[in-house]
């Protein structure tokens, strides 16, 4: 554990220096947490109320107060952004962390130290896991405050946090971060190029885009039962993926089977 923390500390410093990782994260976080809720609220003032009412009625059933309905709608829709950030950030960090070792050919000297491969895997996982969770939690806090302020100004409501948001932030998001991290690490062992590794990472998050698309189209609406089912499914997958990652992170595997530059 001690050695894993050493790896984590060193790599976090490098991630902070790596603009390719934190600039897209920052831009997307700002877009989703601050710009979009404000834009939706402003846009709602200028839109055709009848059309909006029709769309929301389709989703939520009959609602007499349109502004309350709009806030309900926003609370539901923004859950998907809470999912997007934990899916995106580890798919940027985890491949970078592994490919960096391949680029600099530091894996062999690192493995020649008394470090255990489980510590190396844990260090790499923490490097992706902790910043991703920190960013998604921060995103949750900022987005909640922003929506609460807007809801209060519009309708005198403070809708957040609710059960769905809490499940998403504290159970589903960590599970997604963990899964994306582990899958990214596994796939990074097979490539030497950071872009293709991150490309694979983006492919992994496609099912999340599908959920987002279905909800935006009004064909599906997330509720806490769906969220709990999703959590159960993902938590079941976690140990299997971890087992696979431990196999991939075998010392001999790394030195003889990983694709190197």
């Amino acid at each position: 554990m001690h050695n894993a923390l050493k790896i984590f500390r060193k790599e976090v410093k490098e991630i902070i220096k790596n603009k390719n990782i934190w600039v897209p994260t920052l831009v997307i976080s700002l877009m989703f947490s601050i710009v979009m809720p404000i834009a939706i609220m402003l846009f709602a003032d200028f839109t055709d109320n009848a059309q909006t009412a029709n769309f929301i009625t389709n989703l939520f059933g009959e609602e007499t107060d349109l502004e309350v309905a709009l806030i309900d709608f926003m609370v539901k829709q923004f859950i998907i952004f809470l999912l997007l950030i934990p899916a995106m950030v580890p798919s940027l960090i985890a491949p970078a962390s592994v490919i960096m070792e391949k680029d600099s050919r530091t894996l062999e000297p690192l493995l020649a130290t008394p470090i255990k491969t489980s510590e190396l895997l844990l260090g790499k996982t923490l490097t992706s896991l902790i910043p991703s969770l920190a960013i998604s939690t921060l995103n949750f806090v900022v987005l909640s405050i922003n929506i609460n302020i807007l809801a209060y100004l519009k309708a005198g409501l403070v809708p957040l946090p609710n059960l769905e948001w809490l499940i998403t932030t504290f159970i589903l998001s960590p599970a997604i971060v963990f899964i994306i991290t582990i899958i990214s690490i596994i796939f990074s062992s097979k490539t030497t190029d950071i872009r293709s590794a991150q490309g694979i990472g983006s492919t992994i998050i496609l099912p999340i885009y599908l959920v987002i698309g279905l909800q935006i189209a009004g064909l599906f609406l997330i509720n806490y039962l769906y969220l709990l089912a999703g959590c159960a499914l993902l938590i079941l997958v976690c140990p299997l993926l971890l087992k696979l990652a431990v196999k991939v992170f075998d010392r001999e595997n790394i030195l003889t089977k990983w694709k190197m530059k």
């Binding site: 490098e14 050919r105 062999e108």
Partner: peptide, 30 residues
């Protein structure tokens, strides 16, 4: 591994950190 030293075929150093930081990092595992 704690008692041996290995010079690998390729130097294999982290290029984006200093020489001192490289040695400090690797030596921390011993």
């Amino acid at each position: 591994r704690a008692m041996i030293g290995l010079l690998t075929e390729a130097p294999g150093m982290y290029e984006k950190i200093s020489a001192y930081a490289n040695l400090s990092y690797f030596s921390s595992f011993y």
